[in-house]
Simulated assay, not measured.
Amino acid sequence: MSEFSDFIVFVDESGDHSLTSIDRQFPVFALSFCVFDKVDYINRVVPAVQALKFRYWGHDAVILHEHEIRKSKGDFTFLLTNRALREGFYADLHQIVADAPFRVIASVIDKVKLTERYANPWSPYEIALHFCLERLLMFMQGTGQAGRRVHVVFECRGKEEDESLELAFRRIVAGERQWGYRQHRFSDLEFEPKFARKSTNSTGLQLADLTARPLALKTLRPDQANRTYAVLAEKLYAIKEFP
């Protein structure tokens, strides 16, 4: 069995990857890989998120979800009742993201431009996944992780979708879906996809969920104020906007 990597990777997305019915209000797909050093994750990131939950809910069973936070739904309806409480929560959450030591590898696909440029394009998800895995490989090679097993954690989306994603993932890391002139040695490491339900209450998946939409919005509306992106920009290892 391969030695485990010093890093753990959590993945989230924003937008859908359909090319047959493109939402003209949000015609992009973003994929975000959040790479954590396991020591930092255990000792700094998880305790900070747990403390936030106990501070605002009195327990840690709540799951941070960007959509529900933004819409003040579910466990976040309290954000509608008290302006000072809402501003305090947003400030605390923003600070956690800012302080958390992790790197971001991301890809944002403009689906309209993709269909205009290519007659039979790959799925936006596969394009984004390919880019992110290539840059993840480069990151791992540069941090002395060669020969180790790297777990890449995705949130479950459904049996068929998860099986399709796992197949695409394994084809890429097996070198079956090379593109361009540069050949990447995925065999230097052992990349292992893992799928977790939202109910597992994974801190890493929850933080990854907070990153994908700001990255997508930066491409979609580059001149719009984007406080979270300003923080994420300092954590970017790589980002690719395509095409």
Results as ranks from 00 to 15, higher is better:
residue 7 F to W: 07
residue 11 V to K: 02
residue 12 D to W: 05
residue 12 D to T: 08
residue 13 E to H: 06
residue 13 E to Q: 08
residue 16 D to G: 14
residue 19 L to F: 01
residue 21 S to I: 14
residue 23 D to I: 10
residue 23 D to R: 08
residue 26 F to P: 07
residue 27 P to I: 06
residue 27 P to Q: 04
residue 28 V to W: 10
residue 38 K to W: 02
residue 40 D to C: 03
residue 45 V to R: 00
residue 46 V to F: 00
residue 50 Q to P: 02
residue 52 L to R: 07
residue 54 F to P: 03
residue 55 R to G: 00
residue 56 Y to C: 00
residue 59 H to D: 06
residue 62 V to P: 03
residue 63 I to S: 03
residue 64 L to K: 03
residue 67 H to K: 02
residue 68 E to L: 14
residue 68 E to T: 11
residue 69 I to V: 06
residue 73 K to R: 08
residue 73 K to C: 02
residue 75 D to A: 13
residue 76 F to Y: 05
residue 76 F to P: 04
residue 76 F to H: 05
residue 79 L to Q: 08
residue 79 L to Y: 00
residue 82 N to V: 03
residue 85 L to N: 13
residue 85 L to H: 08
residue 86 R to A: 10
residue 99 D to A: 00
residue 102 F to D: 13
residue 103 R to F: 12
residue 106 A to Y: 08
residue 108 V to H: 05
residue 113 K to A: 14
residue 114 L to R: 03
residue 116 E to P: 10
residue 120 N to W: 01
residue 123 S to P: 02
residue 128 A to H: 10
residue 129 L to Y: 06
residue 130 H to R: 15
residue 131 F to E: 12
residue 135 R to H: 15
residue 136 L to C: 03
residue 138 M to P: 08
residue 138 M to Q: 13
residue 138 M to N: 14
residue 142 G to T: 04
residue 144 G to S: 03
residue 145 Q to M: 07
residue 145 Q to I: 07
residue 147 G to Y: 11
residue 149 R to H: 01
residue 152 V to T: 05
residue 153 V to L: 01
residue 156 C to G: 06
residue 156 C to Y: 11
residue 156 C to F: 13
residue 157 R to S: 00
residue 159 K to Q: 08
residue 160 E to T: 13
residue 165 L to F: 04
residue 168 A to M: 00
residue 174 A to Y: 02
residue 175 G to D: 02
residue 178 Q to M: 14
residue 181 Y to C: 15
residue 183 Q to M: 15
residue 184 H to Y: 15
residue 185 R to Y: 13
residue 192 E to H: 11
residue 195 F to G: 00
residue 197 R to C: 10
residue 198 K to Y: 04
residue 201 N to P: 04
residue 203 T to A: 10
residue 203 T to K: 08
residue 207 L to H: 01
residue 207 L to K: 03
residue 218 K to Q: 14
residue 220 L to I: 15
residue 222 P to H: 06
residue 223 D to F: 10
residue 225 A to D: 09
residue 227 R to W: 14
residue 229 Y to N: 07
residue 231 V to D: 01
residue 232 L to R: 03
residue 234 E to N: 04
residue 235 K to G: 00
residue 238 A to D: 12
residue 241 E to T: 15
